[in-house]
C-alpha cells in the first residue's frame, strides 16, 4: 500500500518525538492475539494477530524417508503463502517470491543448521522412527491473511505456537512385517491408535526455537515491531532472531539504506532482550493452553 508523502513525513517526525502513529512508545509491540488448535485436520495449528497482521499456520506430520546426510533426523519443510485475501497484489503468482524468502527465513529459525548436533531449534533427532529408514516429516504451512507490517516476525511466532501445539502419534513398528525377505525386509510401521485420547506426544526442542524481532531505524529513532508505514519511513529494518536465553541466533538487514555498524551491537542487544521477553510470555501461555483438538 502506498502512503502519501504527508503521512511519511509526519510518521518520521513523530517517531523522533517518541510517539508512533498508533500511540505506541518506540519499544512497544502491537497487541498480540493468539488462537491455538483452530484447524481440525492439522497435527498442530495456530493463528496470530499482531495489530492488523494476521497469519495462520498449520502443521502436518507424515512419515517419510530421511535425508541421506542426516539419516537419524526428522525433516521439516516450511512454506509461506501470501493469500490473495491480504491484497490483490498477491493474486496468482504475485506473492510467490516473497513467500519463498519468508519460508527460507522461517525454516532457518525453526531448525538448526546441523540437526545431528542438536540445539538451536526443534530437535529433529527425536523425530526419527527407524534410523536411516523412516522419520517424521513436518510440513509447516503458513498462510498470510493480512499484512500490516512485521510479517516475518509473525510467521515465526505463529509457527512456534503451532509447533508447541503439535502432537505426533506414537509409532509402533514390526521388523519384517513388510515387503522383502530376511535382512532386506522392510519394517512395517503402524501409527498407534490414539485410544486413550492423549493425542500423541509433543515435539522436543520447541523451547529452543528463537523468535524474530524487527527493529526499524527511522532517522534517529529505533522502533520495535514497525507497521507498514514505519517500514516505509525507516532507513533500514533489522530482523534479529533471539532465543529464550536472550542469545542472538541470527540477524538480517533490509531497507533502503544501510545500517551504521556502530549502532549494530546496541540494536542486536535490544532485539534480543525484546525477543526473550516475548518468548517467556508465550511459553507461559502454551503451558496452560488446552491441547490441539481438546
Amino acid at each position: 500500500m502506498s502512503h502519501s508523502s504527508a503521512e511519511i513525513d509526519f510518521c518520521t517526525q513523530s517517531c523522533q518525538h517518541g510517539i508512533r502513529l498508533d500511540g505506541r512508545a518506540c519499544e512497544d509491540f502491537r497487541p498480540l492475539e493468539l488462537e491455538l488448535g483452530l484447524i481440525a485436520q492439522a497435527s498442530g495449528s495456530a493463528r496470530l494477530h499482531l495489530g492488523s497482521t494476521d497469519v495462520i499456520v498449520g502443521v502436518k506430520a507424515e512419515v517419510g524417508a530421511p535425508l541421506r546426510e542426516h539419516p537419524d533426523c526428522g525433516r521439516l519443510q516450511a512454506t509461506v503463502e501470501m493469500s490473495s485475501c491480504a491484497s490483490p497484489e498477491y493474486e496468482g503468482r504475485g506473492g510467490e517470491l516473497w513467500g519463498l524468502q519468508l519460508a527460507q527465513a522461517l525454516e532457518a529459525s525453526l531448525v538448526p543448521e546441523h540437526p545431528e548436533k542438536g540445539g538451536g531449534g526443534l530437535d529433529l533427532r527425536s523425530l526419527s522412527i527407524i534410523p536411516g529408514k523412516a522419520v517424521w516429516l513436518l510440513y509447516v504451512d503458513a498462510l498470510v491473511l493480512n499484512d500490516g507490517g512485521g510479517v516475518l516476525c509473525v510467521c515465526v511466532c505463529v509457527a512456534l505456537a503451532a509447533l508447541s501445539n503439535t502432537r505426533v502419534c506414537v509409532c509402533v513398528f514390526t521388523m519384517g512385517g513388510g515387503a522383502g525377505e530376511g535382512d532386506a525386509a522392510e519394517p512395517e510401521i503402524e501409527l498407534e491408535d490414539d485410544e486413550e485420547g492423549e493425542g500423541g506426544r509433543p515435539l522436543q526442542g520447541v523451547a529452543e526455537v528463537p523468535l524474530i524481532v524487527s527493529l526499524g531505524q527511522v532517522d534517529n529513532a529505533v522502533v520495535v515491531d514497525p507497521t507498514c508505514l514505519e517500514e516505509q519511513c525507516a532507513a533500514s529494518v533489522m530482523h534479529i532472531a533471539a532465543n529464550a536465553r536472550g542469545e542472538v541466533c541470527g540477524v538480517q538487514q533490509s531497507g533502503r539504506q544501510g545500517v551504521d555498524p556502530a549502532a549494530l551491537v546496541a540494536l542486536m542487544e535490544r532485539g534480543a532482550a525484546a525477543g526473550s521477553e516475548v518468548l517467556a510470555s508465550l511459553h507461559a501461555y502454551f503451558k496452560q493452553a488446552p491441547q490441539q483438538g481438546t
Partner: peptide, 11 residues
C-alpha cells in the same frame, strides 16, 4: 501544532 496532539486526535 504538536505531533503528539495530532496522533492523539487521530487515534
Amino acid at each position: 501544532a504538536s505531533p503528539r496532539t495530532t496522533v492523539l486526535v487521530a487515534n
